[in-house]
Structures are given as C-alpha cells and as structure tokens.
C-alpha cells in the first residue's frame, strides 16, 4: 500500500492498526520514524528536540488511533499529528535560538564525500532553514510537506485544515518569499536553471 511516495506499508495495515494490533503499530513506527524525525528536525533544528517531538507524536498516534476516521488519509493524519506536536513544542520552548548547535551525530547519510560540496550543502541547508524561519507557519508547513515530504495538495489541506486553493496560495507565496530571502542572503542557487 503506497500512501506516501517514500513509504510502502503492508496491505491492511490501517485496518490492523484500528483493530489494535501492536505489531501493526510497530510496523508503522518503522515505516515513518525517519519521516517523523526529519519533519520534527525541520521545526526544532535540534537533534534532542527532534527525537522528543517524533516520539511524542508516535505516542499520540498510539493513544488516539481510535479517533482516526476511516476513509480519510492516514498519511495526512499522521503528518498532522507531527506538525501539531512540533509547533506545540516550539511554542512551549522558552526561546528558539537561530543558531542551534548541531550535534556531531547528526550528519547526512548520503552526504557528499567531497569537502567542498559538503560545505556548500551545509551552507545551503543553513540559508534555506533561516529563510524558512522567516515565512509564516502555514506557508512553511505547506512548503515542507510538499517539497520535502511529497504530500499531495489534498493531504496538505487536511494537515492544515484549509482548502486546496489555500494550499496552492501558501505554496506560491512561500516560493516567492523564499526566493527573496535567499537572494537577500546572497546565495546563488544555480548557474543555469533548466525549465522544470
């Protein structure tokens, strides 16, 4: 069962989850743990917080799977739990440092071996993260879910509890604002952009 472009769940997992099968829950955790952690990290920019948020989100899923409405998107429902948990976590945090120290352990699994390219990737990540911090919460969430996590418009609409039209608007506005932020940060993204 393909409910996320990167995640392949076994058939009938949703029904097994709703029936209270613990093995189904574990399977869900194994399938989504990287996505949950990655999304939480994009909000918290901190390994310890990302771990805390992702696990808190799984606990919420475990506790409230009974409230999931059959027929709606499980993928969107799961993402909604993580997004809400992450936003909640950030708001409760006493302060949100712009330059949070990145632990040594948090590196990229597919990181380029070339030091120059690694430095370029790190700079890009830093600038993009900083630009994402300066756009509105909904625009940021729509952008991350669409371009980092591959959710479709309807799923993003479910996560944000808005219409598909609003999602399109958030995506466009976020794209324009990010472009402006990155230009002002003096980051040259590419020499030649092919038509997409």
């Amino acid at each position: 069962m393909k409910i996320n472009p990167d995640i392949d769940l076994s058939p009938g997992l949703e029904a097994r989850l709703l029936a209270g099968d613990p093995e189904a829950f574990r399977e869900l955790v194994e399938a989504y743990k990287r996505k949950f952690y990655g999304l939480a990290f994009q909000y918290t920019r901190n390994h310890a917080d990302a771990e805390d948020v992702s696990q808190t989100a799984f606990i919420k899923v475990f506790r409230s799977i009974g409230t999931f409405r059959k027929g709606s998107s499980l993928n969107a429902w799961l993402y909604r739990v993580v997004v809400n948990t992450a936003i909640d976590h950030i708001r409760k945090r006493p302060f949100f440092p712009q330059e949070y120290p990145r632990p040594e352990a948090v590196e990229t699994s597919s990181g380029p071996p070339d030091p120059a390219r690694a430095a370029e990737a790190a700079l890009l990540r830093k600038k993009l993260d900083a630009a994402l911090d300066r756009i509105s919460e909904r625009e940021r969430t729509a952008f991350i879910l669409r371009f980092d996590h591959g959710l479709n418009l309807r799923e993003i609409a479910e996560v944000l509890d808005v219409s598909v039209g609003s999602v399109k608007s958030y995506l466009f506005r976020s794209g324009r604002k990010l472009r402006r932020e990155l230009s002002e940060a003096g980051l040259r993204l590419s020499e030649e952009v092919p038509h997409v």
Partner: peptide
C-alpha cells in the same frame, strides 16, 4: 520570477536530510 521559483525548488531538492546514523 519563474526562474526564482525553480531555483527555490531545486535548492530544496539539493538540501540534505538530517540523519543521526
């Protein structure tokens, strides 16, 4: 403007994902 939007999307695709190992 279109070029700018394309650049932003390309930058997102090039951005590496955090992975603790």
């Amino acid at each position: 403007e279109w070029r700018g939007l394309q650049e932003v999307i390309m930058a997102t695709e090039r951005k590496p994902e955090p992975d603790p190992g």
